[in-house]
């Protein structure tokens, strides 16, 4: 016999059996409990980095890139990349990289922590 039909036959016994009924004043009991309660305010999830934050971040990044381009611009036409003294930039770059990394990490953590809910 097909399993689904067999299951249906099995559980039909419970569905067709007499179920006990709830008390006649069920609604009244619920409403008397509810009257003393307040609806909890829903907590809305806000992004860790807002629009202003992102704009500031992009501006900051843009400024750094522009300053590098301006600082190492040469008047001669050359196909090779300009030589940069990384020892001078390194401490500054560390701060930039650390900032980018922390923001990225916060976004990833935030995405994993939030679970979609019904409702």
């Amino acid at each position: 016999m097909n399993k689904e039909i067999e299951d249906k036959n099995l559980f039909d016994h419970i569905n067709k059996s007499e179920q006990s009924e709830m008390s006649s004043n069920f609604t009244h009991q619920v409403m008397s409990k509810v009257e003393h309660l307040e609806i909890k305010k829903s907590v809305t999830d806000k992004p860790l980095v807002g629009l202003v934050g992102w704009l500031m971040f992009i501006l900051f990044g843009g400024l750094i890139i522009t300053s590098f381009i301006i600082a190492y611009q040469t008047e001669e036409f050359s196909l090779s990349l300009p030589k940069i003294d990384y020892s001078k930039i390194a401490p500054f770059m560390n701060i930039v990289l650390a900032t980018i990394f922390s923001i990225a990490a916060l976004i990833v953590i935030d995405k994993f922590l939030r679970k979609p809910k019904n409702g």
Partner: peptide
């Protein structure tokens, strides 16, 4: 069952602000 059913409605009442209508009310 009656106790649980009452609790269900009390919880639903308190959490109504969370119900955004993305799913059916019955499913929620």
């Amino acid at each position: 069952a009656e106790e649980v059913a009452q609790d269900t409605f009390v919880k639903a009442y308190q959490g109504l602000a969370k119900f955004k209508g993305k799913s059916k009310f019955s499913t929620w």
